[in-house]
């Protein structure tokens, strides 16, 4: 396990830097440089977002007037107990759910008005997801798992292959490119999942409980890697977690309780 943890530390493949500003201008990370041309640009903006399930007496409010905003290169933790509404908020920000009311824009696009087809396109092109159980396609190799994300976004094959090669190298996965998930360790799988999330150079990276199925050491390593990638590449990152130990790698923490965002 120690191996995997240190493995992950190195896996970033980028100059060590916890500092957002410095990382953003590192020459070794091209898209980070592009992205942070306008420093501090707002990427995710949600205002007074509510989600009500059902209607009448049976109506349950999962989220009440939630507002969050995130800048480029900012990594935010969304903390809350089970049923607090953090999953609902993450789903809304990721164009997986349409809010009952409120306004959500991601890089200037109002995502509350999208049809399900447009949502699907939007997710493919602009959002990178990292799921709880890595959720790689079990019969595809590491490379292919990354390439399907490009396929869904209709990225030309050649270009997608180049991008995947670069990411594999940066994530320290070059040697493992032709391995299928069952041949990879938990940490390696999560690195492939991070690679898949970065594949289409999204505006925002949404992370759902990345440490739920990892031990503390590996969990810490994964979150560290995520923080480095998000900051280094100038993405807006949101991580849902109920593990307070992970908070130290994020820029700020938003707590949510009974559907209400506090602090």
């Amino acid at each position: 396990m120690t191996d995997q943890a240190s493995d992950l530390q190195e896996a970033g493949g980028q100059p060590e830097s916890q500092d957002n500003e410095t990382a953003a201008t590192e020459p070794g990370v091209p898209e980070a440089a592009e992205k942070s041309g306008v420093s501090g640009k707002e990427v995710v903006l949600a205002r007074d977002v509510s989600k009500v399930y059902g209607s009448g007496h049976a109506a349950t409010t999962a989220l009440r007037d939630a507002s969050v905003h995130l800048h480029e290169g900012e990594f935010m933790a969304l903390l809350g107990p089970s049923g607090s509404g953090k999953t609902t908020l993450l789903s809304i920000l990721g164009a997986l759910l349409t809010p009952t009311s409120g306004e959500v824009t991601v890089s200037g696009t109002d995502i509350t008005e999208l049809t399900s087809k447009e949502q699907s396109r939007f997710r493919a092109n602009r959002i990178g997801f990292v799921f709880q159980n890595f959720n790689l396609v079990p019969f595809l190799t590491a490379t292919e798992n990354m390439l399907i994300a490009a396929q869904f976004a209709s990225v030309p094959k050649r270009q997608a292959q180049d991008r995947a090669d670069r990411l594999l190298e940066e994530l320290g996965l070059s040697e493992l490119r032709n391995q299928i998930p069952s041949q990879l360790s938990g940490g390696e799988r999560q690195r492939v999942a991070i690679g898949r999330a970065l594949m289409n150079d999204p505006d925002a990276i949404l992370v759902d409980e990345p440490t739920a199925n990892l031990d503390t050491k590996l969990g810490t390593a994964v979150v560290e890697l995520l923080a480095r990638e998000i900051k280094g590449r100038g993405k807006a990152g949101i991580m849902v977690t109920h593990d307070v130990r992970m908070v130290e790698f994020t820029d700020r923490t938003v707590e949510i309780l009974d559907g209400v965002v506090c602090c």
Binding site: S91, G94, L96, R123, F131, A212
Partner: peptide, 11 residues
Amino acid sequence: DPANAIGGTGD
């Protein structure tokens, strides 16, 4: 529902 992809098991 793609929304089920998030918040599945460990929540």
